Amino acid sequence: MPGDDAHPPPGWQPPPPGWQPPPAPARPAWGAPPPPGAVPPGMPPGMPPGMLGAAHKPGAIPLRPLGLGDMYDGAFRIIRFNPRATVGSAVLVAAVSMALPVLLTAALTFSVDLTSDGTTDATSGEGLAALGTVGALLVGTLLQALGLVFVTGMVAHVVAAAAVGRRLSLGEAWAATHGSRWRLIGLSVVLGLMGAGMVVAYVAVWVVVVLVAPTALVVAFGVVTVPAFLALLVWWWVRVYYLPVPALMIERTGVLAAIGRGFRLTRQQFWRTLGIGLLTAIITGLAGSFLTIPFTIAAQVLAVAVPASQYLALATVVLTALGSVVQTAFVTPFTAAVTSLQYLDQRMRKEAYDVELMARAGIS
């Protein structure tokens, strides 16, 4: 038969002496790690070290629906690889805002005798010290709150860029908010008025009930409406207040459209959003309190050690300002990063936003 070893086909010649078959081609090492410093295919160049990973994770987070661990790990990664645009911006705002009460108290200290004389008169040194300290800190706190509104907007852009492996500097993050800054302030004002309006309306109803209703009805009204009103505030915080800022900044939409966007993204995700938001608030609250403990203790020690000092008010304001700066440096970037990651998570869950992020990262 043709091809049989005993009967080779016509024209067949034996191989020359010493002939060896060629070596089989080497199989590709699919699992071999890339050499140090190499960027895998599909990854954008210039990515920070440590953010290179699988094809579905070009940046700080995996491009898929996120779990709690993914969000917290991503928030810390974003802060670590974008320190100037996150911690740096928060510290800058807090330092500039708190510098005003320090300067005002210093001017008051060196122009008026603030030594305690044992009286509580508002015109006495102790009274002026108290008024000046409280007023200056109030002004500084209001300015800080206004500045931190812009910080949250910047962090939203930093998070969106980090999701595809890009690092934003402080200047780039600030430039990314161009065109949305006034809308961001308007959004903060609208949300603040909404929250304050609900509280004022509820208090007004309470005043009317207390004035016209008998005691038994007042007690019943409180038992029924207080839990209901607290539940309403929680619902409003999650559905209306929580996600509009990243929606406004990343999608560059209007104030009312951003509120509606946050409302739609949290639909059927109320308890999950509430749980992550409350846990984040508890963590940042405890951490912020812990960070300010040394400054609080120092202020109390000074108040006991030198209660009649001319410089006690100034020292108190300086310590309070330092504590506020240190607290803000951690609380604001982390909270804003987690909120922005929740926004991205909801879009990936409901709109397949991960596909768009992969395209931006150059992943086919």
Rank of each mutant, 00 (worst) to 15 (best):
G125W: 07
F330N: 03
P8S: 11
A336D: 02
S111C: 07
L286D: 02
A287F: 09
V218I: 14
A162L: 08
P40M: 05
L286G: 09
L286R: 02
V218S: 03
L170G: 04
P21K: 10
H178P: 00
R77W: 01
R84H: 13
T105V: 10
M98Q: 13
H7D: 14
R349E: 13
P28R: 14
D5G: 04
I259T: 08
P65M: 11
D113K: 02
V164Y: 03
L193G: 08
V112Q: 06
T296M: 11
T86C: 13
P62V: 09
L279D: 01
R272K: 07
A213I: 05
P40V: 03
V317R: 04
F76Y: 05
M47Y: 02
V212A: 08
R167T: 15
T266C: 07
Y72I: 07
V331Q: 11
A54T: 11
L184D: 00
P244E: 01
A303I: 01
P2W: 04
Q300Y: 07
M249Q: 13
W182E: 07
Y311L: 13
A29K: 09
P44K: 03
A107K: 01
G260T: 08
V93S: 06
A54S: 12
I61V: 15
R252Q: 11
V189F: 14
V151A: 02
A162V: 07
G135M: 14
A305Q: 15
V234A: 15
R84N: 09
A196G: 13
T266F: 03
R360M: 14
V301Y: 07
G192W: 07
A336M: 02
V301Q: 12
P34Q: 05
G147T: 04
R166S: 09
A220L: 15
P16M: 10
L146T: 04
M71P: 02
A94F: 10
G277M: 04
R183S: 13
L191H: 00
A321L: 09
V226S: 03
G186H: 04
V205W: 10
M348C: 11
A303H: 05
P45L: 08
V91Q: 09
M98P: 00
M154G: 07
P25S: 13
L104M: 14
A361Y: 06
V102N: 01
G3C: 06
G46S: 13
I61W: 03
D345H: 10
A220W: 10
V234N: 02
P101H: 09
G197I: 12
V245F: 00
T273I: 01
Q13G: 03
A175Y: 05
V210S: 13
T332A: 13
F263G: 00
P294F: 14
M43P: 00
A161E: 12
L344I: 07
T141N: 09
G118C: 10
L230A: 15
A173S: 15
G171E: 06
V159M: 06
R167H: 13
A361T: 04
L100G: 01
T141H: 08
P34Y: 15
L52G: 06
E356Y: 07
W206F: 12
E351I: 11
F229Q: 02
W206P: 00
Q300T: 05
V218T: 08
D70C: 09
V208S: 12
L187W: 09
P16E: 12
L66M: 13
P44G: 02
V226Y: 06
G285K: 10
S124P: 04
A85R: 05
Y241A: 06
V226G: 00
G50K: 11
D121Q: 12
M348P: 04
G192E: 06
L170D: 01
G179Q: 08
